[in-house]
């Protein structure tokens, strides 16, 4: 399968690519249709499909081709359940400290805001609201997915190894959706990295750090599809030396 590309002359113009307005390519279709899946069938993902997904991760670009990832596949339902229980327990503890939305608990608002200032990503209002739902059992952690892939990162790698993990993970996610599977990025696995039990079981030990996880399974219903989302302003420094903003 590996081998040389056909020979091209050095000055040959590149392929023109599709005309303006041409239909989406299969890759674009998968990118645009991918939605996070939070409702899975119980049936397990067969090993060959999981391996196919991992293979897409293996061929992700990384700084200096260091490939600073280690993937941990978890298909043991008892283990996923135990992980879920421990994440819920942590969410409950945080909520006892910082849930100011319960009646009569306004005094906790200062705790929440201090946490948000110190760790704005972890205690951003969205994960904070999610922690409340998780602690109440209204939001799953891995949403009943039969397979979880934990993504570990080699902390010694060049550049920004966590970024490389994101790239490898998204390769796997897109491959999975193209195979008819569903995925959801689940970073609520993070608290497990603080527990000796999970450090041992997941192999989180120098040089590895726990980065995030991906839930994988067959979706119930058809969750993938295109939706609207806000356009983003992009600065464009043109060939004419002028800057414009496109959306």
């Amino acid at each position: 399968m590996t081998g040389k590309n056909p020979r091209t002359e050095p000055d040959e113009p590149g392929k023109p690519g599709p005309e303006p307005g041409a239909p989406f390519t299969p890759v674009e279709e998968v990118i645009f249709r991918r939605r996070s899946v939070r409702f899975y069938r119980k049936s397990q993902v067969p090993e060959h499909l999981v391996r196919r997904v991992l293979e897409a991760g293996r061929f992700a670009p990384s700084a200096g081709n260091a490939q600073p990832w280690r993937f941990v596949v978890i298909q043991d339902p008892a283990m996923i359940e135990e992980m879920t229980r421990d994440v819920i327990a942590v969410c409950r503890r945080v909520m006892r400290m910082a849930d100011y939305t319960e009646p009569g608990m306004q005094r906790k608002e200062s705790v929440a805001k201090a946490l948000q200032r110190i760790l704005p990503n972890m205690f951003h209002p969205i994960p904070l609201a999610a922690m409340k739902l998780i602690s109440q059992g209204k939001l799953g952690v891995w949403h009943g997915a039969p397979t979880v892939i934990a993504l570990l990162v080699d902390g010694r790698a060049p550049g920004k190894p966590f970024l490389d993990i994101g790239i490898a993970g998204q390769n796997m996610v897109l491959a999975a959706h193209s195979l008819g599977l569903g995925t959801c990025w689940v970073s609520f696995i993070a608290p497990l990295a603080m527990m000796p039990k999970w450090k041992k079981r997941l192999g989180i030990r120098h040089p590895y750090k726990l980065a995030t996880s991906i839930a994988l399974g067959y979706p119930r219903g058809e969750p993938d599809g295109m939706v609207s989302r806000e356009t983003r302003a992009v600065d464009w420094h043109g060939e004419d030396g002028k800057r414009r903003v496109v959306t």
Binding site: P120, H124, M226, E230, T231, R232, A233
Partner: peptide, 21 residues
């Protein structure tokens, strides 16, 4: 669409559109 008004405000967002060709 969700928007925060101060510290966590989303920046540089325009009107919503489906994937465009």
């Amino acid at each position: 669409y969700l928007q925060f008004r101060h510290f966590f405000r989303y920046l540089d967002r325009g009107e919503a559109q489906p994937p465009r060709r």
